[in-house]
Design a protein around this nucleic acid. Sequence first.
RNA 1: UGGCCUAUGGUGUAAUUGGCAACACAGCUGGUUUUGGUCCAGUCGUUCUAGGUUCGAGUCCUAGUAGGCCAACCA
Length: 561
Amino acid sequence: MEEITKSLNFIEHIIEEDLEGSYSKNELRFRFPPEPNGYLHLGHASSICLNFGLGERYDAPVNLRFDDTNPAKEESAYVEAIKKDVAWMGFHWDKECYASDYFEQLYKWAVQLIKEGKAYVDSQSSEEMAKQKGSPTTPGIAGPYRNRSAEENLDLFERMKNGEFEEGVHVLRAKIDMESPNMLMRDPILYRVLHKAHHRTNTDWCIYPMYDWTHGQSDYLEQVSHSLCTLEFLPHRELYDWCLDQLVDKDKLRPKQREFARRNLSHTVVSKRKLLELVEEGVVSGWDDPRMPTISGLRRRGYTPEAIRNFADTVGIAKRENLVDVSLLEFHVREHLNRIAPRVMAVLDPLKVVITNYPEGSEEWLEAENNPGDDQAGSRQVPFSRELYIEKADFKEEANRKFFRLKLGGEVRLKNGYIIKAESCTKDTDGNIIEVQCTYDPKSKSGTGTEESLRKVKGTLHWVSVSHAIPARVNLYDRLFTDENPDGHKDKDFMEFVNTDSLETITAFLEPSLKNVKVGDRFQFQRLGYFNVDKESSSEQLVFNRTVTLRDTWAKIQQKK
RNA sequence: UGGCCUAUGGUGUAAUUGGCAACACAGCUGGUUUUGGUCCAGUCGUUCUAGGUUCGAGUCCUAGUAGGCCAACCA
């Protein structure tokens, strides 16, 4: 009954077919294979959700494998950050694997290849090799070292391994087909010399395998059934299969690579190089800046793993070009936060209101619901007094009847409190309104059940009591780019589209119940949006980040004018 | 002057594998509401083009068009 038959994506169709064919269900195994050379971002998130989602759907193990074959770029600090992010997303990996654990086996297989005449040591410069490689439209030609004897190749390769050569003087290449229409099959490089310490194998090796000589074999060694990667690896599939052809034991499961389109999100970039540029140019404060599309940035912004996973689920997976609108991501974070975030009152842009007929010096505590959609959420007390703050935008001297807020002579309800009426206002010498004088109806107090308390007035405002309010620093974030596809312009650099107003930091006034919040706590500031406590927050100085605003139909109406 | 991949509302993804084009978001209209939030109801709008096969084509075939990927000792 609760079994909702969800439609399958094309990867799941492939798996279903395999299950009807030669695969049994317990042979299914997946992997998420990041290179530990940077932080995970939203693009990785869809791959994570795909692979681990498949694991959950088929009750199959999923390995977390670090593709660490290039010591020049990789660090163990990234390994730790990646593990943290995947765990935060709520996924559990079966084995924690490293491509570097397979270096010895990979080396042995390479030796075997040489003996079979399927690989050779090339001693040319990369420029010369590139020249011989031809182009997509012209075939390549053989280089002068292509037919070295197996003995010579073996000797050279061993000496490469032993550190006898400088970087760049020799490489090991597969001997495949210099005329293949697939550039990757034109004798791809399998090994290069790199005199660099590796974050795990240290200086044990000075030759390192290339991606193509590593990935399929790693999948094979781990007996991964379906190796899923993005579409730009599609041309690699032929090579992936060629490598496996050379060494697969027919009794063992042979992994298959399949490709899906990477997710592109509007108003952002996800390429590591570009994210790094944003950090280095100081456009953002770091990799976990709440405006960054990194997992750590989203976490700090207040996003929940559920929101990100639901987003990935509804977006799905396919093979065509795409540009998903961020509003879908925002929908999912609102949808989740609406269910879980306690409601509180905070004023971001204060305007003082004085209730002239409320006794001076007195105060009272009003009952306030924590979440109207959740009767388990309970309630709290908020203080009311003669002097309050409301939002500047919630008062106008004059306005038409579409303005459901406070205007002179008009009435409005203060949330959880009383109905008030604006009688007059005072201005500074520049004509700015600095205070509004109101009267209140003492019988209209919320929840008392009196006739007056049940009176309907158009408009309910949030507010805080001036004397009780806690000042807090609040970061108001907006989209990082003004263009929906900053990456998509041939003649313009993405940096030209940086939104210079993507961060506004203000001092806001919070209801006192927020005094003891913890880093990461999430709230709905009523009528404003969802906010969470930043890692820089302390009991002396509270700091909140705006995750996302509430849907705002009033703003839309105003925009239309 | 090559090879490969892709094409479904504004966006993303489906379509029992050849049988009534659907779901979500966005938009719009109305209702409810002590959040212009939430919730509820309604509405808008789609198979790149031209042929072909078929009783029947989003799905298969051919050609075209458009977009993407491929020439790192990166992954």
